[in-house]
Nucleic acid binder design. Structure first.
Lengths: 146, 146
DNA sequence: TTTTTAATAGATATTCAAGTCTATTGAAAA
DNA sequence: TTTTCAATAGACTTGAATATCTATTAAAAA
């Protein structure tokens, strides 16, 4: 079970941004180095974050990205859906169009458990939860590192 | 969150086989029709199941596949790993080589929850659980349908 | 023995996510 | 105003997963 590479990148980038304690924007370049995400690819992801209203961008010298709303208002689900990572509540591992509690496919019951736990996770985890977990990842964001 | 297409196919095919109540083998052709998996692609997946010892194959007229061991002995994890679907317990969403409870990446704590629930699911769910869930999927396996 | 059914093998094709490259636009600093 | 930094835009490339095709091998039935 995994996220797509892009979805993983999106979570990573947003996690890094929330860890930046001062109010200055993080440039794409710094963010790319801190997260290990290919810089041009990261740019595309960030563009989507801006369009989705999760992040604000600032062009030009000293510019970069910062969160557009409070960390606790940004759920993982919002981030994942922004990069087109569909968490389809009715998707069926068996490939059935109609698959629900009334008309379950052979794998419906067991698969539902797992799907529900992912749903819960993505809807309830926010960037605030990332900020609450102290560790030294912030040091990655030093603009003069590397 | 999703399985790879191949991993999904593997679960589907094995689920279908366990639902066959008589002791006759299921042919690749019937299985392909019942599951909607491209038949040649399914053949490759089944070959891996045979090599892994989960399934026994019988060539020639009247041949096909049947389980090589009791349904409760076949966990989802076994099936997934057979198609190279790695469930890496130490994988890190943040891409860190060393990421554990002592040296957690910013996403470690929240991600661990989810990973653990998947681990539990794949290790504890077996084909017996599929067999225990009554529904009319067995009818898909009628050799003369379609 | 011949025919038919079905697994096995492997080469080839297709598709899409992921990654790269080049150029443009916008804003701050000098 | 000029320079520099950095986001934006989009064309292009790559590679792995997925799918298809053709042929061969094995076993049962006729």
């Amino acid at each position: 079970m995994h996220l797509s590479q892009t979805a993983e990148y999106a979570l990573r980038a947003m996690a890094c941004i929330v860890l930046k304690k001062d109010n200055r924007p993080v440039s794409s370049k710094v963010l790319a180095r801190a997260t290990g995400i290919p810089s041009h690819y990261l740019s595309k992801i960030m563009r989507k974050m801006v369009e989705a209203g999760l992040v604000a961008s600032q062009k030009g010298h000293g510019g970069g990205f910062k969160l557009a709303k409070a960390p606790e208002k940004i759920t993982f689900k919002m981030i994942l859906e922004t990069v087109d990572y569909r968490i389809e509540p009715d998707s069926c591992v068996f490939g059935w169009d109609e698959c629900n509690n009334e008309e379950p496919c052979p794998l419906h019951n067991t698969w539902s458990h797992l799907k529900n736990s992912f749903q819960w996770w993505s809807e309830n985890m926010t960037l605030q939860d990332v900020a609450n977990n102290p560790n030294d990842a912030e040091s990655l964001l030093k603009p003069d590192a590397g």
